[in-house]
């Protein structure tokens, strides 16, 4: 078992399970050493305290495996509802359409489409699935995300130019908004796939 010689042990880390002041069954399955997988106690087997990995590579490996398994089980839950993607597309298009057909309501359209709708969608999606949107969880954004962001900013700049130089031209920005909306929905959907893949990878 472990000793008190762990280089990690500070003043509070005593021998045995001293790394955790709350040892007991509620502390979870202990890290196994040797052949145990460390994923939990067997039937009738009391879960032990959590020994510090200390210098025990097997215990550290078991802890990593348990963490990997936990991540993998979460992957099955990553399934953002279809209406989240659809709503994102709608909100994006709405913002551009309100810029296009400006009847004094473009500010409301932008606030609704680009701020309120995504925010509410995120809240409702979290309520429906128990998880935040996958796009916010990724360690790395998909490549398409950068392109989408650029296209979005480009669209906003174009909107300003259209307003100034071609104030009578209607429909172009709405079309651009619809295109970006579909793009956003695809990216959002793709984020689910990427997150699932990330979660299934070993730690």
């Amino acid at each position: 078992m472990e000793s008190n010689s762990s280089p990690h042990g500070g003043p509070g880390s005593g021998p045995g399970a001293g790394h955790d002041p709350e040892n007991g069954p509620e502390n979870g399955p202990g890290y196994a050493s040797g052949g145990d997988t460390g994923h939990g106690p067997g039937p009738g087997q009391a879960p032990g305290p959590a020994p510090a990995p200390g210098h025990d590579p097997a215990a550290a490996r078991a802890a990593l495996d348990a963490a990997s398994e936990t991540r993998a089980s979460l992957a099955d839950r990553v399934d953002t509802p279809w209406w989240y993607h659809a709503g994102l597309a709608l909100g994006t298009a709405l913002g551009f359409a309100s810029l296009d057909f400006d009847y004094g309501l473009s500010t409301y359209g932008i606030i609704t489409g680009w701020i309120l709708i995504p925010m509410l969608l995120g809240l409702f999606a979290a309520r429906a699935t128990g998880l935040g949107p996958s796009i916010a969880s990724l360690s790395k954004r998909p490549k398409m995300f950068g392109g989408l962001l650029l296209a979005f900013i480009g669209g906003v700049v174009a909107a300003a130019l259209f307003k100034y130089f071609l104030p009578d031209l209607r429909g172009v920005l709405t079309g651009w908004g619809v295109l970006l909306g579909v793009w956003a929905a695809v990216v959002s959907h793709r984020c689910d796939d990427i997150l699932r893949r990330e979660l299934r990878s070993r730690l």
């Binding site: 880390s13 509620e26 991540r71 935040g132």
Partner: peptide, 20 residues
């Protein structure tokens, strides 16, 4: 020390993988 306990490690791993 805080993360080390098995359940807490799993909690942190789960939360690290999701925004919320």
């Amino acid at each position: 020390e805080v993360v080390h306990a098995p359940y807490r490690l799993r909690i942190c791993v789960l939360l690290a993988a999701t925004d919320t």
